[in-house]
Nucleic acid binder design. Structure first.
Lengths: 337, 337
DNA sequence: ACCGGTGATGTTAGCGATAACACCTGGTCG
DNA sequence: CGACCAGGTGTTATCGCTAACATCACCGGT
């Protein structure tokens, strides 16, 4: 009866190759002082046994793991999901595994708990997607010395941070509408406590002010299509509203439906621009002009900043900003005369 | 100068509490034979030092980690993203961390590589979201003895599997359209090599046959709104098409736009049902009737099956099916007379 | 009063890797 | 020609934990 023998260990490889386990270790870690012939023998033995180093043992002695912890909200919002996906890919390419700690609500307590879970696992570094101030507050609980990068966090906080340039995207979206001939542009914003939303409001306002256009009141919503629908029901009633910049594509979707119900044709009667460029935005009715953030770039920058901290041992608090691009489709036209 | 002293270890706690490190270990693992007073002393010391056990050391000696590896496609499709999110939450509740190995394409090679990366990390178990046959094929490369659960995989394969009952959902959707008075129901399917798509085709066909309705040819697409749009452009040309069941909500979105462009009003001229119930489906034009899978339930079942294997050491190949529900909105009406 | 059982604890031996050092061999140099 | 250096290799200690066994005090039964 074949007993399930344990996985081969370094000594097994050493025995087969006729060397000491330390030499096997040297081969594995690409130390220079190994004779070529020995290296080949060891590698052959590794292959023959299908040996794989025990990460736990390595982590124990080195005190480091090859794990990166990510704290993200438990949401299926397109933006966060894309970001996470891109980050996992980038990390895998760099030889790191990613452990995700989802959090139901972005309050300080939940986030701190998630960070602690990651610290328990001795992750090499932590990425926190902290798009609200409550989330950003939680970062104060993270002891110094833990490599940490914040994504979409508070621009005014001195932690290493990577963000999409929300204001620039919003500015461009708004200017695009103004250039189409609209006197001003209304804005349906995401939740006020999200930095993303705040940045977009800021860019929108700047564009209006730069053009000496009137700044209408901000319509504050959340990120959902439902909220966009409600905002749309209101805005549809106001004939002077001819252009709306929505803080994300789902808001825009809800708004489009409200307009459709009330008989206001987009873009003939009213122009709309969104933010995110969700994959189906090109199939809204009409196809949505929107701002596309480069999530892959954000992921790359984040990983870079984190690994830099891991090796340098911390140091300064650099900041990286990724520029989004405007994708023009069919939801923008000159205002009705 | 304060040297950054290393993290406290079990012996530090032991010293502070005046016991041996083994007693600390017993307290940590809830062994019964510890005097209450001792337990309290140890717990106080743990708290005072902010001691946290070293998982690597524990994993080294027990040979087990508290990590679950998930292999999923690098996609931001709503279904997979929701599932993943729900699974992470469930795993965290059970004290497991989740390491996600994203894969760009669902071919055998990529999946096997992702599985190997997880095995390198000595994960306690692996979940593979394997919605295509190429993905399911890769499971053959996973050695027996590795706890493994497949999600959305091949129903005909003898591996532990959790799936949504695609056929039942599709059946219900189709019957709903028939009951509204349509003579038959057309179907825009997802990619043919996806089990989800195949199951939905199956349920759709069953419902038609049970009602002795004509079975029109399947319109095969992928999961994108773009494909739904193309399918819609074709179907809109055929006056006899009065009801369409789309294999997911994004296909339905694209189809709705094509209908809108061609002047076919939904639901007055043509009824549509989708699948997935993405959060914004209620804000399509018109609000979409669709089938909602319970991803949280799938996640729970998956975790349960996996943990059972981890403790039982494998054994049989059970199978769990989760029933979806039909969500009725405004995209279905009786056919035009 | 003696003995075995039981509960509470301590001691020792690994788990599988890396780090530090010791040990050989040769070749080079004074 | 012996000392020294450096490259290649082996030996030993160690990381922080758990498992297994050893120990000790104390209990009740006969």
């Amino acid at each position: 009866m074949e007993k399930t023998s344990r996985d081969p260990a370094m000594t097994d490889v050493a025995r087969l190759a006729g060397v000491s386990h330390q030499t096997v270790s040297r081969v594995l870690n690409n130390h220079p002082n190994v004779r070529e012939q020995t290296r080949l023998r060891v590698q052959a033995a590794i292959k023959e046994l299908d040996y794989r180093p025990n990460r736990a043992a390595r982590a124990l002695v080195t005190g480091k793991t090859q794990l990166i912890g990510v704290v993200a909200q438990n949401s299926t919002l397109y933006g966060p999901a894309s970001l996470l996906s891109a980050f996992e890919e980038a990390a895998a390419a760099a030889g790191f595994a990613v452990s995700v700690g989802r959090v139901k609500v972005l309050d300080r307590e939940s986030i701190s708990a998630a960070v602690e879970r990651h610290r328990d696992q001795r992750v090499a570094g932590i990425v926190v997607i902290a798009p609200t101030s409550s989330a950003a507050d939680a970062l104060a609980d993270v002891p110094a010395g833990v490599p940490l990068v914040t994504v979409d966090g508070d621009p005014d906080r001195p932690t290493p941070l990577v963000t999409v340039d929300q204001a620039a995207g919003a500015y461009e979206a708004t200017r695009h509408l103004l250039e189409a001939g609209h006197e001003t542009v209304w804005h349906v914003s995401g939740p006020a406590d999200w930095f993303d939303a705040a940045g977009r409001v800021h860019g929108w306002r700047q564009a209006l002010e730069a053009a000496h256009a009137e700044v209408p009141p901000v319509v504050t919503a959340d990120w959902s299509a439902a909220a966009g629908y409600r905002a749309g029901q209101m805005l549809a009633r106001m004939p002077e509203v001819t252009a709306v910049f929505c803080s994300n594509d789902h808001l825009a979707l809800g708004l489009l439906r409200a307009m459709s119900e009330r008989g206001r044709r987009v873009p003939h009667d009213l122009s709309v621009v969104g933010f995110d460029d969700v994959p189906e935005a090109a199939y809204f009715i009409p196809p949505l002009t929107t701002v596309r953030p480069d999530f892959a770039a954000v992921a790359r920058e984040t990983l870079g900043l984190l690994l830099q901290q891991v090796s340098d041992g911390g140091a300064a608090a650099p900041r990286r900003t990724v520029e989004p691009t405007l994708v023009k489709r069919e939801s923008v036209a000159p205002p009705p005369r």
